[in-house]
């Protein structure tokens, strides 16, 4: 979207007038590895949700915490912090 804007569309001082618009930015395409949750091991402790630096881990209706891959950058902090090793990282495949 931003690659259609010309210099005339730039706000004064490049201010972003719309608060909270980072949610429109697809940061998931930076990812080289994705987190895979093993629900058999997960104890729903929510540490992954707490530690995720991009707030891309959300509780589902079933109470399990899973990464929203639209945002998840694959940093693996969730996998590292998980006390029961329920999260593993797997390589993204070339598409």
């Amino acid at each position: 979207m931003t690659d259609k804007l010309t210099w005339k569309d730039m706000e004064v001082g490049n201010i972003v007038k719309e608060a909270g618009n980072a949610c429109f930015r697809r940061t998931g395409d930076w990812r080289t590895e994705r987190p895979i949750l093993d629900k058999d091991k997960c104890i729903k402790c929510a540490l992954c949700w707490l530690y995720c630096p991009d707030a891309s881990i959300k509780p589902g209706e079933d109470g399990y915490y899973e990464a929203d891959l639209y945002y998840c950058k694959g940093c693996a902090i969730c996998a590292r912090i998980c006390p029961v090793e329920a999260i593993s990282m797997t390589e993204e495949e070339e598409r």
């Binding site: 931003t2 804007l5 010309t6 569309d9 730039m10 490049n14 201010i15 007038k17 719309e18 608060a19």
Partner: peptide
């Protein structure tokens, strides 16, 4: 006009990726 104000939140000093930085400099 663009003073920071909690009642009208906005961002000053956001980053400018390559697809927008050059346009900001021309502006």
């Amino acid at each position: 006009r663009f003073a920071l104000n909690p009642d009208q939140p906005m961002t000053h000093g956001a980053f400018g990726p390559p697809e927008i930085y050059a346009e900001t400099k021309l502006a």
